[in-house]
Write a protein that binds this DNA or RNA. Structure first.
Lengths: 208, 208
DNA sequence: CTTCTCAAGTTAGCCTCTCTAACATATGTT
DNA sequence: AACATATGTTAGAGAGGCTAACTTGAGAAG
């Protein structure tokens, strides 16, 4: 039984001595890994504890309950998504419709590389978990889309048209993400070029 | 303790005597009710048993495990969705683009009236549960959309263009459904008229 | 009508999971 | 050096998933 061994291979995950250092971060990372491995509902607090190398009671010094752990993982994920989206457009000049496409691609890319996190946030697992941080993280992502639409069609971000077009594109990309990461559903889109439909949709929606 | 009382108020749900009659159907209905009440992850086999008035071991004569119960609820739900979609277009002449809109509205309507079933099927709860019946039920729904697109644009259902347009519209409606039923996300679409965006999107995608 | 059989129930109990209470340890402030 | 507090631990209550072994009763066969 060397659960509390000193050889610390997995930084931030396992602990070195009696105290972990940053168990909160360690548990979030452990949970994220488990969720990505076993699906959005295939994780238990106990599993996360084993991964982090602590007792099953330890998490409750950092989170109120299992739900709060899930929310924390989602918030982190949304922050990564937002950062990815931002960095995906830095090389493209403002107003270029390719920026809109890059955002959509990045959204889908996130859904495909962190599918379980994506579903944890959007699939209904956080239903009824009112959390300001999580809501704010989601809004920040939508704001990014509105900003881009505003630049593309040359209208104020306050304009209802901008909101409407952003909402339409977001709905499309959001649904596409869900479909692509579900093997059964993705089968129905066989032969379809994701890049093409993304560009095609952007063109159709952004035109008058 | 009158759990096995003779007064049978809730047909198909509770049993009358020692044998239930159709416990399989009773458990599916009980599960559906619980899921709609408490969210897609807010149900337990035990709860369903209590609702159906049987012991906690009874379900295992009809389902291999909890996952199979979930899948059964999803299959039933998809069949309802398909039926609703079909009946929503019977009064509109073939080829009329309003048929496409009616299908989309019905899809969204289903997501809003049976939100937990919708998320159970599409939110990731059935991840890794390979089930032919469930996959077939989903495909039938997409076929309906393709059929309509084919009629609207006057091309064979085999045509890649038809598949592509159907896929684009489905993605949009699918994403819109997820967004509308999530209170936090729906807030971002404040002031947006669902009927309008549906019609607008259909027009944009179905045009050349 | 009786008897047999088998599908469809039941009880008892295992293991795991979430979460709490009570106790232990280490860290940094005074 | 001593204490206060944050962060761990162990023990255990209560619930849920699932199985094994037993029971019931409904329909077929004699």
């Amino acid at each position: 039984m060397s659960a509390t061994t000193d050889t610390n291979d997995d930084t931030t995950l396992r602990k070195a001595g009696y105290h972990h250092g940053d168990l909160r971060a360690g548990l979030i990372e452990a949970t994220r890994q488990l969720v990505e491995q076993n699906g959005p509902d295939g994780f238990s607090v106990s599993d996360a504890c084993r991964l982090a190398g602590v007792s099953t009671a330890a998490p409750y010094k950092h989170f109120k309950n299992k739900g709060e752990m899930i929310v924390a993982v989602c918030v982190e994920g949304m922050e990564r998504l937002k950062a990815n989206m931002h960095s995906s457009v830095t090389d493209i000049p403002e107003g270029d419709p390719r920026r809109m496409m890059a955002l959509g691609k990045e959204y889908i890319n996130y859904a495909l590389t962190e599918p379980a996190c994506f579903r944890l946030k959007f699939g209904g697992f956080t239903d009824g978990m009112d959390n300001e941080a999580l809501k704010a993280a989601g809004e920040a992502v939508f704001q990014t889309a509105m900003q881009e639409v505003s630049l593309c069609i040359g209208e104020s971000i306050e304009s209802p048209v901008v909101r409407q077009k952003a909402f339409m594109l977001w709905s499309f990309v959001h649904g596409l993400s869900f479909i692509l990461e579900d093997a059964d559903l993705a089968d129905m889109g066989e032969g379809i070029d994701v890049d093409f439909v993304l560009a095609d949709m952007a063109r159709r929606v952004l035109s008058d």
